[in-house]
Design a protein around this nucleic acid. Structure first.
Length: 559
RNA sequence: GCGCUCGUAGCUCAUUUGGAUAGAGUAUCGGCCUCCGAAGCCGAGGGUGGUGGGUUCGAAUCCCGCCGAGCGCACCA
């Protein structure tokens, strides 16, 4: 597990400074443990940072906000962080400007930490399990799975960067009725090929891939052209599709530490044990020949059947058993990335876990839901239906749009907003994908540095220890503060389980770089200024690269 | 009918968890390459944040009602 010194950002440093001033100015307040918050004003006229504590404390202290702000500023210890004296503005905000030396500090920190800049030890190496994709092996992965894969993988990377010990897991529902459907569908195609009269099963899968599987089956099992051996057909179809899915995921640069088979819950008796435990806890009752779980004791709106009158279990029982198993494997924290159409099951799985009474925390597991994707083709919405065989596969997307653009597209929006994927646009105008904007910023910097080297500049590592005092322009100040925001941004994204925050940040950082590039020149005659600027953009390239790495996107030197 | 998620510029979406004048991209219009990559930059127009209340110094953000959208509401998975 890579570690790095935590970069004490300017924001925290300022918060500490004001916390001390608060203690000096209002000693009596210490008992109530008020915490100073430092924020970044949207309006540049309001300085680099702002403190609004005076407004929040007005009522508590029975004083006017302006008086409190004044007392705080007066009590501030001298610091080389600050440029001049903070201003008191509006109803009682304190606006702060950073000194040049405080702003340039981040460049050194970027070089010291390099590929680890932005990492923290917050997770303290605790185990966390991230479950995602978990597609049934009944068809190829489609765009929805792509979104799940991109989000789940990025969440995993984010948590890794926060110092968690992350395990990625894929849960295969290989024991249910859908697998049977798959087998029957393949069998129907086999019979068709063999000229045996038979009807296609109700609810069967109509996609072309079913015929493909049938063709492959006959190649391997020439003696069973009509698919009479259903078990063999089933096993073959599942193996075939699992392999296909693995290839899709590999092309997407997503890998898992473990594939957990639903069937193993049965073969290891975990479902029976879970049910027995719930019965023993008195959380169940018999009614109408079925066994019910009192999920209403834990906030569900009605009780749920666990064991049907025909003796089989409903789907959520193995889900509960699976999560008990996660807990018992030592994952005190678990995150499940799911399509929003599954949200109905969250309450009952959590209720089941609570009813176990084995110390599982009430919110276990965390869920991250992503909304469905509307796919447009030819100006019309494509209704995704695996059963009808109408959908767009993840592989198609990767082949035609590219891995980087596909990943970025799925990540850049908040996961619980619905998004529209226009296939034609993605195919014909893939260069408009915002990921290129970010990658271009990186490539641009590399290009400038390469030219500096051909002019005899030497190794870029010499740029890491130059004097940064010439960096006095507004563009440089904006860029340096953006770099300094990176660690906090990652932390925020990890806390919120919201990968899109990283994408939004990178777009902003790239914009600042492009603006700077167009406003100033780097390869100048003024040696000191040249080196300082090159050093700044070298640090920027490092941060762009680190951010793209967290998203699983490459940072090319040329495009 | 009940539940979950949501409603921000023509379109696609942000808004750092309650802060000051709500921002990007795209589309439209107008500028910028004899000069480090124009996959870029600069500027203009475009908004009663679905709507009506409430909470407070302060609300797109929190609470309630209504309107609208998506999804889920089987002894299916």
């Amino acid at each position: 597990m890579p570690t790095s010194p935590v970069f004490l950002d300017n924001k925290s440093a300022i918060a500490a400074l004001f916390q001390q001033a608060l203690a000096t100015a209002f000693p009596a307040l210490m008992a109530s443990d008020f915490k100073i918050e430092v924020e970044k004003p949207k309006n540049p006229d309001h300085g680099h940072f702002a403190v609004n504590s005076a407004l929040q404390l007005a009522k508590k202290l029975g004083k006017k906000p302006c008086e409190i702000a004044d007392a705080l500023v007066t009590a501030l210890a001298p610091s080389d962080l600050l440029l001049g004296t903070p201003e008191i503005a509006g109803p009682g905000f304190i606006n702060i400007r950073l000194s040049l030396s405080a702003e340039t500090r981040v460049i050194k920190s970027v070089f010291e930490n390099a590929d680890n800049f932005g990492r923290t030890n917050q997770g303290n190496n605790q185990k966390v399990l991230v479950e995602f994709v978990s597609a049934n092996p009944t068809g190829p992965l489609h765009v929805g799975h792509g979104r799940a894969a991109a989000i789940g993988d990025t969440l995993s990377r984010l948590l890794d960067w926060q110092g968690w010990d992350v395990s990625r897991e894929f849960y295969y529902n290989d024991a249910g009725a859908q697998i049977n459907n798959l087998a029957l569908s393949v069998q129907a195609r086999l019979r068709e090929k063999a000229g045996v009269e038979s009807a296609f099963p109700d609810g069967g899968y109509h996609g072309d891939y079913i015929r493909e599987i049938a063709d492959r089956y006959v190649e391997k099992f020439a003696h069973d052209k009509a698919g009479g051996e259903l078990d063999a057909v089933r096993a073959f179809a599942v193996d075939y599709l699992r392999n296909e899915q693995d290839l899709d995921l590999k092309a997407f640069d997503v890998s898992f530490d473990r594939y957990y088979l639903e069937s193993s819950l049965y073969s290891e008796n975990l479902v029976d044990k879970t049910v027995a435990h719930l019965i023993a806890n008195g959380k169940t009752y018999e009614q109408d020949g079925a066994l019910w779980l009192k999920t209403t004791d834990y906030g569900d709106d009605k009780d749920r059947v666990m064991r049907k009158s025909d003796g089989s279990f409903t789907y959520f029982v193995p889900d509960v058993a699976y999560h008990v198993n996660k807990w018992q494997r030592g994952f005190a924290r678990a995150i499940v990335e799911l399509g929003a159409d599954h949200h109905g099951s969250l309450a009952r799985v959590r209720a089941g876990l609570q009813a176990m009474q084995i110390g599982i925390a009430a919110g276990y597991p965390d869920y991250v839901l992503h909304q469905m994707i509307t796919v447009m083709r030819g100006g019309e919405e494509v209704k995704i239906s695996k059963r009808a065989g109408d959908y767009v596969t993840l592989r198609d997307l990767i082949d035609e749009v590219g891995r980087d653009a596909t990943r970025y597209f799925f990540i850049m929006r908040k996961s619980d907003s619905q998004l529209t994927f226009d296939i034609d646009l993605a195919r014909s105008k893939s260069e408009e994908n915002p990921v290129y904007y970010v990658q271009y910023a990186h490539a641009r910097i590399c290009s400038v540095l390469a030219q500096w080297q051909t002019q005899g500049g030497g190794d870029t590592s010499t740029l890491k220890a130059v004097d940064h005092s010439p960096l006095t322009s507004k563009y440089e100040s904006d860029l340096m503060r953006a770099l300094a925001d990176f660690p906090e941004t990652l932390k925020h994204a990890a806390t919120e389980l919201a990968p899109h925050i990283v994408a939004v940040y990178l777009a902003d950082l790239a914009a600042k770089l492009h603006t700077y590039y167009n406003a100033e020149r780097f390869l100048l005659d003024d040696e000191k200024l040249k080196l300082a600027r090159l050093s700044l953009i070298l640090a920027t390239a490092q941060v762009l690269k680190n951010g793209l790495t967290v998203l699983g996107v490459s940072a090319p030197e040329k495009m």
